[in-house]
Simulated assay, not measured.
Amino acid sequence: MTAAPSSGVFRKARADAPDGFFAREAAGLDWLRVPGGPRVVGVSDVGPGHLDLERLSPVAPTAAAARTFGAALAVLHDAGADAFGAGPGPAWGWSGTADGWFGPLDDPLPMPGGAWRSWPDFYAEARLLPLLDQGRARGVLGDADARLVDAVCTSLPRLAGPAADDEPARLHGDLWSGNVLWADGGRAADSGQSPPPGAVEAVLIDPAAHGGHRETDLAMLALFGAPHLTEILAGYQEVHPLARGWQHRVRLHQLYPLAVHAVLFGGSYVSETRSLLAELAA
């Protein structure tokens, strides 16, 4: 994120961005604004090659703010989606396909969207199998990896356990710790409320918003170590208790983002992905 010409905004820019890239992100941010949900970074302008966002003043996170964020995240997830794979539509300023992107600004991977009735089908057909094709095209994944991916996809109804029948949640979709900014200013920008002095609030940025499984966002927070994660989870469960055995499914939901890192960056991410695939396929 780089400073825009105006001192009041930050500008994300890429002259050769994929068609609709920034408009889809802006629509996703708008889709994530729900009453009682987390604060979402404000959008001031969007064009084919840029997205202008409100300037935030970062502060250190606190345990209390993390617990509040967890509760608000549960409210966001409970806002739901039309289907697994569905995303923001015309009501949120997006008239393109349900597809999106996942990954860094300079090399985002296409992320299929659509409408799936079950999460196991969605995870297999819209996440793991397309990513396998992307990995093979880049020479990162091979035949042995394909056999493991197929085995995991076949086992998804069992691996999902009692959470397999969850309704589609409204996900941020790329909720690693770097996409949760801790800022002062409370909720004034969203609701006109005056926050108490020194208030700390989590602010969502850089989404890959879509309808998915609520455990996916939580697993992403754990993948790279969100601060005060225990408090985030506690706040979440006060609003929406997670299905039995959710702790054992964290690695399942981390498979896709970990494999994305393998495809994009190679290195140790490849061996970590293969190890996780073997673990889940066993």
Rank of each mutant, 00 (worst) to 15 (best):
A146Q: 10
D217V: 07
A3F: 01
P157E: 12
L181R: 14
A278I: 03
E231F: 01
L181F: 08
L148R: 14
V41E: 03
R274A: 02
R170G: 04
E215P: 01
L204F: 09
Q237N: 11
H261Y: 12
A64Q: 14
L264D: 12
L223Y: 09
A234G: 03
P257T: 06
M220D: 05
R251W: 03
S191W: 03
L171V: 05
G47P: 10
V140C: 07
A63I: 01
T230M: 00
W182L: 10
P61Q: 09
A243R: 15
T273E: 09
G85I: 10
H213Y: 11
P257W: 12
W176S: 06
G266W: 14
V270S: 02
V40E: 08
M1R: 09
Q134P: 04
W101Q: 06
P197L: 08
R127A: 00
L258A: 06
L242G: 05
V149E: 11
H50E: 02
Q254N: 13
A282H: 14
D190C: 00
P157F: 11
G113W: 12
V239H: 15
E167C: 01
A17K: 13
P58G: 06
A208W: 07
Q254E: 12
A234F: 02
T62C: 04
P207E: 06
A164H: 02
I232V: 15
G103A: 07
T230N: 06
V34N: 11
E125Y: 00
G20Y: 13
G235I: 11
G103W: 11
P196F: 04
W176V: 04
V149A: 06
P110W: 13
P48R: 13
P112N: 06
H261S: 08
V75L: 09
L128A: 01
T68E: 15
A222E: 15
D107V: 03
P88N: 04
G245T: 01
G245Y: 01
H172N: 07
R33I: 01
M111Y: 09
T216E: 06
D121H: 13
A15Y: 01
V59P: 08
L51M: 04
V152G: 06
T273M: 14
G198C: 09
L159W: 11
L221Y: 12
H172R: 06
L29I: 02
A188I: 02
A219P: 04
V260D: 09
V200C: 10
W182N: 08
L129N: 02
A81D: 10
E201F: 00
D166W: 00
I205S: 04
P90G: 12
S268N: 12
E125P: 00
G211A: 05
L148E: 11
G36E: 14
H50A: 08
W182F: 10
A199N: 05
L51W: 08
L159T: 06
V59G: 07
N179G: 03
W94I: 03
P35L: 08
Y123S: 02
L229Y: 14
G212E: 10
A26I: 07
V140H: 09
A98R: 14
G135A: 07
P18R: 13
G100K: 07
A64E: 15
A199C: 07
P90K: 06
A60D: 15
P195D: 14
W119E: 00
D30G: 02
P241H: 09
L73G: 04
P38D: 12
D217G: 04
L204E: 10
D143C: 00
A81F: 09
P196M: 05
D52S: 04
A74G: 05
D165N: 11
R187D: 15
P195T: 05
A226V: 11
